[in-house]
Design a protein around this nucleic acid. Structure first.
Length: 434
DNA sequence: TCTGGGGTCCTAGGACCC
DNA sequence: TCTGGGGTCCTAGGACCC
C-alpha cells in the first residue's frame, strides 16, 4: 500500500465541522461578540452546550452548569445566550447546501458537521481542496470550519480532531495521507478522543495499558471483537485505514421519535405531569406526521433529579397501540394510562418524556382500523383534525393544543438570553443602518 | 432556585419452541 | 434413577454521539 488514501476501497472521507457552531452563529449576527468569550446554554438555560475559543481559554467547560459558573463567568466578561434553534437550524441548512457544491456525496451527521466523500481526487490536491471548502463556507455562509481528511470516517474525524489540537499550525485542514503521518497523529491522540470511544470504554482500555490511538490501532480486530465487542473491532479497523463504518444520513426518516424536557423546578403534582405529557404527545405526534410515519408503540418515562440528594424514582414503560396511528390524542390516552402506573406521589420529578416507537410509513387513504373502537368516518375526522392542528400550529405560536396542557406553566422552558431569529422571522431581521 | 434533548446501535438475558 | 440443549425472537438497558 502506497499511502493511506489509496486503501483497497479507494475511499476518501472528509469531515467538515463548524467551530463551536452555536457560538459562531451568535457571533455572525452580533458583531459585538466576535473574538469574545461566548457561551450558549442548553434548554432551560441549564448548562453550557457551546463554548467559544475565548471562553474555553478562560477555563469555561462544555457541560458546565450555568448556575454554578454564572458569577465567575460574568466577572470574566463572558457573554451568554440561550439556545436559538430556529437560527441554528437555518444556518445548518445553508452550511450543508454549500457543501453540496463540492461533492455529490454529502452525509449530514449532526447539526454542525457532515461527511463529504472525495473519492477520485488526486492525493496531492486534497489539502488544497479542503482549504477551498473552508474558505467557501467562511466567505459564503459566514461560519468558520475545520476539515479532516482520511481513508475512513474514523480517520477523517481524527484528522478533524487533530486540526483542533494543532490549530495554530494547520489553519483548520488536516489530511492523513501517509502511514508516517497516520502514526504520528494516532500516537498523539488520547484514547477518548477517538470517535466511538466514550468515558466508560476509555477508562477500561486504560487498565489494559492502552492510552492512545496508536496503541489501539496496533491490536488485531479479531482479538478486540472477542475480548470487547464488535464496535471496538470496527474502530480498530478504521484506525488501520480499512473503512467499515457508513455514517448514516440524518435526513433519513427517524426510527424513533422522542419529546421530552426537564422542568424549571421539580414537580410532584400529578396534574402538572399530565399537562407536560399532553404537550409532549402533541409535539411527538407533530414530528411523526411531518415525516409521514405512524407509530405502533407509545412509551413514557419519568425521572427525578439525580443531582439532588432526594429520593430517586426513575421509571419507564411502553405499550402497543391497538392499531398503527398518527393521532396525538390516541398517544395521550395510552401515555396517560402508563403515567398513572408509573407515578408515585411524594417524589420531585424533573423530567418527563414520550417516545413513539416501531414507526412505519403512513399510507394516505388506506389505514388499518381499530376493530373495536372506531369507524372509518371517525378515523378520517381524526386525521383531518391532526392535519389542521399542524397547519395552524405551524403558522401561529401557541395555536391549538390539548386542553390538559392549558393552565399549567411550571414545566415551561426558561430562555432568558435568547437572540433574535435573524434569518427566519420577518419581524426579527437584522437592520442595516446607513 | 437553577445540571439538555434528541438520536443510534449493540448486547445480555428471558421467553419460547422443538 | 433419570429432569437437555440449542436456536430464535424480543426487550430493556447501556454506551455512545452531538
Amino acid at each position: 500500500m502506497t499511502g493511506h488514501l489509496s486503501g483497497y476501497k479507494n475511499q476518501v472521507w472528509a469531515l467538515v465541522d463548524v467551530k463551536s457552531f452555536y457560538c459562531s452563529c451568535e457571533q455572525l449576527f452580533d458583531p459585538s461578540l466576535v473574538n469574545q468569550p461566548v457561551v450558549v446554554l442548553s434548554n432551560n438555560d441549564g448548562c453550557c452546550v457551546a463554548v467559544s475559543e475565548q471562553a474555553k481559554a478562560l477555563g469555561i467547560q462544555r457541560g458546565a452548569p450555568w448556575f454554578k459558573i454564572e458569577r465567575e463567568a460574568r466577572q470574566l466578561g463572558v457573554q451568554v445566550r440561550s439556545s436559538n434553534y430556529a437560527l441554528y437550524a437555518d444556518m445548518s441548512r445553508r452550511f450543508i447546501e454549500e457543501l453540496h457544491r463540492f461533492s455529490p456525496h454529502v452525509e449530514q451527521y449532526s447539526i454542525d458537521e457532515a461527511f463529504v466523500r472525495l473519492d477520485g481526487f488526486r492525493l496531492d490536491t486534497l489539502e488544497q481542496y479542503g482549504s477551498t471548502i473552508r474558505d467557501a463556507i467562511r466567505d459564503h455562509i459566514g461560519l468558520p470550519v475545520r476539515v479532516g481528511i482520511g481513508a475512513t470516517p474514523t480517520l477523517a474525524k481524527l484528522g478533524n480532531q487533530a486540526a483542533k489540537q494543532f490549530e495554530c499550525r494547520v489553519e483548520g485542514v488536516i489530511k492523513i495521507d501517509s502511514d508516517v503521518r497516520r502514526q504520528w497523529i494516532l500516537e498523539r491522540t488520547d484514547i477518548q478522543d477517538i470517535w466511538g470511544i466514550g468515558a466508560k470504554t476509555a477508562s477500561r482500555l486504560r487498565t489494559t495499558g492502552i492510552d492512545n490511538a496508536l496503541q489501539l490501532a496496533n491490536k488485531t480486530p479479531a482479538d478486540m471483537r472477542r475480548l470487547w465487542n464488535v464496535g471496538l473491532a470496527r474502530t480498530v479497523m478504521e484506525l488501520q485505514g480499512i473503512a467499515c463504518i457508513e455514517p448514516g444520513d440524518i435526513d433519513e426518516t427517524r426510527k424513533q421519535i422522542l419529546s421530552s424536557r426537564s422542568f424549571g423546578s421539580g414537580i410532584s403534582n400529578f396534574d402538572e405531569l399530565k399537562a407536560a405529557l399532553a404537550f409532549h404527545c402533541q409535539r411527538a405526534g407533530e414530528k411523526l406526521r411531518k415525516q409521514g410515519s405512524q407509530a405502533n408503540v407509545v412509551g413514557v418515562f419519568l425521572r427525578t433529579n439525580r443531582h439532588k440528594n432526594l429520593p430517586q424514582h426513575n421509571r419507564s414503560s411502553a405499550m402497543p397501540l391497538s392499531c398503527p396511528s398518527q393521532d396525538s390524542y390516541k398517544f395521550l390516552d395510552l401515555a396517560l394510562l402508563q403515567l398513572k402506573q408509573l407515578y408515585r406521589p411524594g417524589y420531585e420529578y424533573q423530567t418527563i418524556g414520550v417516545i413513539l416507537n416501531e414507526l412505519t410509513e403512513a399510507k394516505n387513504d388506506s389505514f388499518q382500523l381499530d376493530m373495536f373502537n372506531s369507524s372509518a368516518l371517525d378515523e378520517h375526522k381524526r386525521r383531518d383534525l391532526m392535519a389542521i392542528t399542524d397547519q395552524v400550529n405551524a403558522r401561529f405560536k401557541n395555536g391549538i393544543k390539548p386542553a390538559s396542557v392549558i393552565g399549567s406553566t411550571n414545566w415551561h422552558m426558561r430562555q432568558a438570553f435568547r437572540s433574535n431569529r435573524w434569518t427566519t422571522r420577518l419581524d426579527e431581521l437584522p437592520i442595516a443602518k446607513c
